[in-house]
Amino acid sequence: MRSPHLERARLQGLQPALQLRTQVLTAIRSWFSHEGFTEVETPVRLPTPALELHIDAEPSGNAFLRTSPELHMKRLLAAGYDRIFQIGPCFRKGERGALHNPEYTMLEWYRLGTDYLDIMADTESLLRQFEPFNLKSEIPRLTVEDLFLQHAGWNPVEAYDAERFEHDLVSKVEPALPRDTPVFVMDYPVSAAALSRRKPGREIVAERFELYFNGVEIANAFSELTDPVEQRQRFELWAQQRQASGAPVYPLDEDFLAALELGMPPASGIALGLDRLVMVLAGAKSLDEVMAFRE
């Protein structure tokens, strides 16, 4: 067992980070309140998790711990809730590293009748609440196409290759992103669309963006896919791909699909890793420096 003296010193050293986290949470809630959002709480334990190609869920008895509150929040959107946000725990099996913890806190917000550019404006407005970002001008908006052509020498939007895309993103593009300012990386290849819709007029591009700060991914946003047919096709494709790679396959969330089938207006939303936001605001390099108890 580790010396209790060392453990106590570690916890005491985290005090400034935990105070910063409190300030961040207060600023976030105040911003959403000012914007007229409803704070919601959706289930943490789910009969089936949101199916994604590369996210594994932690089983909990005969259910699963949520990997994201996304599908339940979209059911609220489909029912007409026009501005909702949630701050709560999410769980992703096996994800542990300087920037990952299997249990972490997610901030998600959604707006009905908007697209990802509106969420980008929200994000910019929210980030202005935090002094360390020192936002004097607009956050740079860089497209995946431009970034890859410049730093990796190919265009993943025109010809997608998942393995090459992920490798070059981590080893060539992320290290080349501007420093000391938040950055929006936008317009992903449709093969990396996840739950985002295709760009009207350019169907090979997905209306998705990510927020980065100093090369660290902080948030991921979509113009939400609201087409029930395409949504079901994507879920089924991921289920096949998961099966082929030996990953656990989860049943489709039929309650969510039924809500889409009944009709859902255009909407957009974003998932922001709160622990990572606190980490970059603290100038820290690892979640160890801002989370009291790591798995």
Binding site: G97, H100, E166
Partner: peptide
């Protein structure tokens, strides 16, 4: 040293 990275919605590295 060991680190776990996950680019965007991609596979773990």
């Amino acid at each position: 040293e060991f680190n776990f990275v996950k680019p965007g919605k991609g596979a773990a590295i």
